[in-house]
Amino acid sequence: MMSFYWDSNDALIQSVYYKVPYIELSSMLREKQNHMRPESILVGKKTYRFVSRPYQGKLPIVEKLSNIPLKTIQIFTEISAEVYYLNRLLWCISIGIGVGALLSIIAGYALARRALIPIQKVWEKQQQFVADASHDLRSPLSVVRGQTQILLRHPDHTIEEESAPISAILKETKRMSNMVDGLLLLARGDSHEEVISCTPVRIDVIIKEIAKKMEPIMDYKQLRVQLHVEGSELLMNGDENRLIQLFMILLDNAIKFTQVDGQIDLECIRQGKSVLVTVKDNGVGISEHELPLVFNRFYKGDSSRSRGDHGAGLGLSIARWIVDQHQGTVHISSGVGCGTTVKIRFPVIS
């Protein structure tokens, strides 16, 4: 750090410092004696920082160098190195900001695409859902329309004479009603509007009652049912109506896909702090590649399994929803020609 001293005539008091390159600097600073704020000045390739202050008469050694009163003192220092490194730092920061902005754009684009994946999947499922629902509703509507047209051709016929078309209309109407009820239940479940009412229920009693109710159907289909309930008072928190609906869906599927003289095993046992319900049949079974899809809505699998009895493909979707609402788990194992086993586990009340 160095100093310039100026007298009242704006003459620079000479000292050892006032040589080249300071001669050029002094000529530039002469005009800036009234600049009281710190400033920077460029001399050639060097940068200096200076500040000017009025002389206050406290430097007797300097006063001896001039017979004229001192007016201004200027203190300056070279800051070329600092300016160089600051410029380099600014350059690095600018590059960093540019690279950061570019990376932010790339990362934002990638994250946006990733965030859109579940939305895209939901959209595709919705589109598939609408297409499947439209297709499944079109078939019964076509039957109803066709049978109605047949009825209109013979307005003079009695109900008994037209019992076949009326029966077909009733069957398809019931089928559409069941489908709409299932869709409404799943839609309310997705939007959390459908809430089950859980109370302590005895699942062993529910299993026994369902098995008893299904006996006439088993006899009509020429099927055998093997019931095994281990223990008593298997108590759990659940919605009795929904649990009945769940087991009716599973038994209905077992009956539908089991051949004449087949057997269906219904088992309810306690395992630790849970109860395990198993529905097993020795029917046509499910292929390995179809197992992950059986819970999808409107999924019906290989048409050869249905033996002409086509459902809406919503049963197992509703069954899984009921199991999830009861904090349970469901697992299906099967093989073509080996039958199907469905295992459901619920927590029990200790």
Score class of each variant (00 low, 15 high):
residue 88 R to W: 13
residue 162 E to H: 10
residue 189 G to L: 00
residue 171 K to Q: 05
residue 117 I to Q: 05
residue 87 N to A: 09
residue 166 I to A: 06
residue 124 E to M: 03
residue 83 V to R: 15
residue 126 Q to A: 06
residue 178 N to L: 08
residue 111 L to M: 06
residue 161 E to Q: 15
residue 125 K to F: 08
residue 126 Q to T: 11
residue 104 S to V: 02
residue 130 V to T: 09
residue 139 S to P: 00
residue 101 A to H: 03
residue 141 L to F: 11
residue 120 Q to M: 07
residue 182 G to L: 01
residue 185 L to Y: 09
residue 152 L to P: 02
residue 186 L to S: 02
residue 144 V to P: 01
residue 129 F to K: 04
residue 164 A to E: 15
residue 123 W to F: 11
residue 84 Y to T: 10
residue 182 G to P: 01
residue 141 L to N: 07
residue 97 I to M: 15
residue 183 L to C: 00
residue 197 S to H: 07
residue 116 L to R: 04
residue 90 L to W: 07
residue 132 D to C: 05
residue 142 S to A: 14
residue 176 M to C: 05
residue 117 I to H: 04
residue 191 S to F: 06
residue 110 A to R: 08
residue 194 E to Y: 06
residue 195 V to K: 11
residue 112 A to S: 11
residue 106 I to W: 13
residue 115 A to D: 06
residue 118 P to K: 05
residue 125 K to E: 15
residue 194 E to A: 05
residue 145 R to D: 14
residue 151 L to A: 07
residue 192 H to N: 10
residue 198 C to F: 09
residue 128 Q to Y: 07
residue 111 L to R: 04
residue 164 A to D: 10
residue 136 D to W: 03
residue 115 A to V: 00
residue 130 V to M: 09
residue 153 R to G: 13
residue 93 I to D: 07
residue 133 A to S: 13
residue 114 R to W: 08
residue 195 V to R: 11
residue 186 L to V: 01
residue 122 V to Y: 04
residue 92 C to F: 10
residue 152 L to K: 15
residue 93 I to H: 03
residue 95 I to W: 15
residue 113 R to M: 06
residue 135 H to Y: 12
residue 199 T to P: 02
residue 141 L to Y: 05
residue 169 I to L: 03
residue 119 I to G: 00
residue 176 M to I: 07
residue 158 T to H: 11
